[in-house]
Design a protein around this nucleic acid. Structure first.
Length: 533
DNA sequence: AGTGCAGTTGACTTT
DNA sequence: TAAAGTCAACTGCAC
């Protein structure tokens, strides 16, 4: 504000300046909260508050919650976070105004009664539905002469000419000072607010998520603290284990999705933890843990950037050579067996059942369950991808659809990774504890038989009665899938299209030099390797 | 002590 | 964030 005021004061009379201050008092700043449900480090809110009286707004959009990727557990988390945000804003003098309806209609009605000077919201890279809704809102803003500012909260750049310098920009943004929350908000007169609807009112059926994470900034702060103080120390070693990962991973993901914490404050906490570990001197594992964690925060934005640059990845193969490879209509019994944890592959089933109840899986297990759907079960990624979107409390469209396509091999860019669900189980859950926890039918078996009940007499006795026979033979199914994928990848036109995709979407990372390379490193220029991983 | 050989390990390639 | 295969170096052991 000071800049504009100063220039006016210099150029014009004091009266003009006073008039501008007067106008500023009345110029309603609507802060439209979307997936940034916090007042701390919220640039939209902070900047709006510098300009004039703030109307904090949340729009419950029934059409959004009718989309196939939306689910009961998402709304529960969002609603808890919205309620907490409302309390926080109320303490500052102006409660959150909740409106039920279509965004343009809501904005238009507020504009007619109160007059919106400026609209503020964070820059959102959501699904196709939110993208189209934002286009309608942008049109309305243009028609009504309302400027709409969308400061960034993630490292996503809009528009992005190319990927050069992206990582540096991410670093700069995350290290920048956090925005401070306005201490007091001036109450807005005559503003009505709707109650938060129940999931049923939004048409959302219960989804079996009895043990999903709780929303609200308080829960996020507690996770952040316990992760940085204690849980995170073994992050690097334990994150891939389905049992240990639940504790050793930060579990901050839904808070980043709904913005109850800003990714910047999380990254800065990690850097601070790294610093304190270094100054302590003793080897505790914290520096390495934080390095791994920070690289994942970086990947978070890296993947969302992909959806920003290529919205069709939500419904279309990134690489067209894979169109028609798998049947469009899913094989319903196979899909159902996979979804419900009744595929007869114990470790896979344990993961799927655990996901349904808790809304969370560690990264490796997410990759595995998607790979099994895509390769062993030969399902097109759309139906399994939708199921996972609905199951993940932390569903973030940009990360999700990039990963789904990557794990089904339809990007054509990265190498095919066919996870072996039996081997992963033996590697990550050697004692079969995770299987026993989620597939109690098999808990009475010795560990080895829990992983492969068909290979042991005592396991065979349960098959077809207490626990299903495997829906596919894993080794043969994997071989078949690899053969079909590699047949496509060998075609020269596949490579050509893949190179174009790599140039557009892949990260730029320095080549890792082989340890045994005899050539002196200085003889070759630094090369760039392009990765979609 | 040196040699041959089977089995192991790790780095690297292929699918 | 894969898994299987290849190859060369290495190991332990018998002779």
């Amino acid at each position: 504000m000071s800049q504009r005021c100063a220039s006016l004061c210099r150029r014009d009379t004091q009266t003009a300046c006073a008039k501008w201050h007067q106008m500023k008092q009345e110029a309603l700043q609507v802060v439209w909260f979307k997936r940034d449900l916090r007042v701390e480090d919220n640039a939209a809110l902070a900047r709006a508050a510098e300009r004039g009286p703030v109307l904090p707004l949340y729009i419950v959009e029934p059409d959004y919650w009718r989309e196939p990727d939306a689910n009961h557990r998402h709304w529960r988390f969002a609603a808890q976070s919205i309620a907490a945000l409302n309390l926080n804003l109320s303490d500052r003098g102006q409660p959150l105004v909740i409106r039920f309806g279509e965004a343009v209609a809501v904005l238009d009605s507020i504009h007619k009664t109160h007059g919106i000077a400026t609209l503020w919201s964070h820059m959102e890279t959501g699904n196709h539905w939110t993208f189209m809704r934002d286009r309608r809102v942008a049109g309305w803003c243009r028609d009504n002469g309302v400027p709409w500012h969308e400061p960034r909260q993630f490292g996503v750049i809009r528009p992005l000419p190319n990927r050069d310098g992206w990582a540096k920009a991410w670093d700069r943004q995350m290290r920048a000072p956090r925005s401070t929350a306005p201490i007091a908000l001036r109450p807005i007169a005559n503003m009505t607010s709707d109650p938060l609807p129940s999931p049923e009112q939004l048409g959302l059926a219960p989804d079996g998520g009895s043990a999903c994470q709780k929303g609200g900034r308080e829960a996020g702060l507690m996770l952040l603290e316990s992760f940085m103080e204690q849980r995170g120390r073994t992050y690097r070693r334990a994150m891939s284990s389905p049992l240990e990962g639940a504790d050793a991973c930060s579990r901050l993901s839904p808070h980043l999705t709904w913005g109850t914490l800003s990714i910047r404050e999380v990254a800065q906490a990690a850097w601070a933890r790294q610093e304190s570990a270094r100054s302590e001197g003793t080897r505790t594992g914290w520096t390495g843990a934080m390095t791994s964690f920070l690289s994942r925060l970086h990947w978070h934005c890296h993947f969302i950037q992909k959806l920003e640059d290529a919205p069709p990845i939500e419904w279309q193969n990134l690489h067209p050579a894979y169109d028609g490879l798998r049947p469009n209509a899913p094989d319903s019994p196979l899909l159902a067996a996979w979804q419900t944890g009744q595929a007869g592959l114990p470790f896979l089933d344990a993961c799927m059942r655990s996901l349904e109840a808790t809304g969370w899986l560690n990264f490796r297990m997410r990759a595995m369950v998607m790979a099994v759907a895509s390769y062993h079960l030969w399902l097109d990624w759309r139906a399994p991808g939708l199921h996972l979107a609905r199951m993940f409390t932390d569903y973030e469209p940009g990360i999700h659809w990039s990963q789904v396509q990557m794990q089904s091999g339809t990007t054509g860019m990265n190498t095919i990774r066919v996870y072996n669900p039996v081997k992963q189980g033996l590697d990550q859950d050697p004692d079969g504890l995770f299987i026993a926890r989620w597939v109690p039918e098999l808990a009475g078996l010795p560990a080895a038989a829990r992983h492969r009940p068909w290979a042991y007499a005592e396991g065979q006795r349960l098959l077809g009665r207490d626990y299903p026979h495997p829906v596919v033979e894993p080794a043969a199914a994997a071989k078949n899938a690899k053969d079909r994928l590699w047949a496509i990848r060998k075609a020269p036109e596949h490579r050509h299209a893949a190179e174009m995709l790599v140039a557009r979407h892949a990260s730029r990372a320095p080549t890792r030099r082989s340890k045994k390379r005899k050539n002196p490193p200085s003889s070759t220029p630094q090369q760039l390797t392009l990765r979609f991983d």
